[in-house]
Design a protein around this nucleic acid. Sequence first.
DNA 1: CGAATCGTTGAGGTCGCTCAATCATAGTGG
DNA 2: CCACTATGATTGAGCGACCTCAACGATTCG
Lengths: 245, 245
Amino acid sequence: MDIAALPPLARKLGAFVALRASEISYLERLQERPVAVPAGTDLVTEGQVGHAAYVIQAGWGCAYRMLPDGGRQVIDVSLPGDVMGVRSILLRTADHALSAVTDLRVSRISKEQLLQLFEEQPRIALGMLWAVSRDEALVVEHLVGIGRRDALHRTAHFLVELGLRLQLIGLGTVARYPCPLRQAVLADTLGLSAIHLNRVLRQLREDGLLTFTRGQVIVPDVARLTEFAGYDSDYLTAVHTPILR
Amino acid sequence: MDIAALPPLARKLGAFVALRASEISYLERLQERPVAVPAGTDLVTEGQVGHAAYVIQAGWGCAYRMLPDGGRQVIDVSLPGDVMGVRSILLRTADHALSAVTDLRVSRISKEQLLQLFEEQPRIALGMLWAVSRDEALVVEHLVGIGRRDALHRTAHFLVELGLRLQLIGLGTVARYPCPLRQAVLADTLGLSAIHLNRVLRQLREDGLLTFTRGQVIVPDVARLTEFAGYDSDYLTAVHTPILR
DNA sequence: CGAATCGTTGAGGTCGCTCAATCATAGTGG
DNA sequence: CCACTATGATTGAGCGACCTCAACGATTCG
C-alpha cells in the first residue's frame, strides 16, 4: 500500500503503527467531511467545555494561551496531518485556544468518537498516544528553547525544526519552505516582542543564515544553520518506522 | 472501593477511568517490586535507547535537558503517582534525561509491558493517555510561564501549582508543603539563574507572599498568592471525576 | 573541625523590552 | 486609476529585567 496516498492522519499514524486495511477505513470514517475555517478564526476558545479535536487536512493552525496582562503565548504550530486539541478533550476544559493561522480545512473528531476509538481500536489508540507524545516532544523542545536559548539561537532552532516538519509531510524543504506566519505570531511563539524578533531576523539575514520573507523561509546553507541552531535532536526523524506490526 | 488505599498509579488513573477490579490487579501486576534510586542519580540519560518508563512510588524526580553551552532546563518535576518517561518509550530515543531529585522508589514499566497494555487494556490505555495529557498540560503551563511571565510571577505561579499537586496526592497543602528542591534546581526549572532566583525568593518573602526555606514552602495567605500568580487554570482540579464508567 | 555544598549579597554589564515614528504592501471605494 | 486606509515590517532611543563575576555566610556531614 502506498503510504503517501493516504489521508494525512493515516499517513502520520502509519509511521508508528503498521495500519491494517480495516484500521485505515476506520480512520477514514472517523474523519467527517472536512470543514473550512477562515484564517484568524478560533476553533476552540480558552476554557471552552464540550469541544472536539480537529485533524488538519490543509492549512496552518496554532494553539495559544492569553495572559491577564494581554500577553499571548503560542504553544505550538500545527501542520496538515496534525491533530489539534486531543489533550483538551481528555481534560474536558480547554487549557488553550485553537486558532486558524491560514485558511484551514479540518475534520472534526468528537469526544464520543475518540472514546469509542479507544475502546474498539487499541492499535490506533497507541498510534494516537504516539502522535500526542511526538507533539509533546515539540512542546518540550519549545520549552527548552524559551528557557535556555537566547533569541538568535531560539529563532534559528525553531525555523530549522519547522522546515524539517514540513519536509516530512512533503510541503517544502529545510532549504526553502513556505511559511505564512506573521512576525507577530512568530514572536508570540518564541516568547519575544515583535520588534525584537524583527531585529533578530535581520541579524540572521545579515549573517547569511536564513531569510524570512513574507510567506517564505530560505536557508542558503542548511548545515551551517543547523550547526548554529544547535539542532541535534532526532525526535522528528528517528521515529519513522512502525514499532507495532 | 477506597480509592485512597490504592497504589499511586491506580489512584491517579482511577480519577479518570472508573477502574474495574481486574484492571486494578492488572496495574498491580504491572508494577514490579519497586527499586530504590539514590538522589542525584539519572534513571534515563538523554539520547538513551531501549529504556523504560517509571512509576514513582515515593520521592521526587525530574526530567531535564542539557544544552551545548552547559545550560540545563528542567522540563517537569514528578511526584508520587506520576509516570516518568512514557513519551520517551514511544519515541524510542529519550529526548531528555530523568533524574532522582530525592531518594526515589520507582516501579519500572518496560516497553513490552506498555505495548501489551495497549493491546489488552484499552480502558487503562485511555487512562494513560489522560495522564500523559494532564502532564503535558503542566508542561504547557510551564511554557507559558517561561515565555510570558516575569520572574516574580513565574516563580509564584510554579510554587502555587506545586502546592496544589502535592495537596491532590495528600502530601501537603498549598499553605505549607515540603519541597526538597534546591534553589539551583528551581532556577533550572524556571529558566532563571540561581542568583536571580535567590533575589526573587527574597522579594516574595519580603512581600509576605511565600517563604521558601530549605525543604519547605510556607504560604501565609494562599488567596493573595494565587491572585498574585494569576493562577486561574483548573487543569489540575477540574478533572477528578471519571469520564469513562 | 575541616570540607563541601548551598545560599546570600554586591557591582556592573547586556539582552531584550517599550515607546514612537517611518516605511512597505495590499486592498477598497470613488 | 488613484487617494485612502489598514495592516505589517522596520528602525531609533532609552530603559529595565535578568545575567555574570566575585566574594562571603550558613549549613550539613564525615
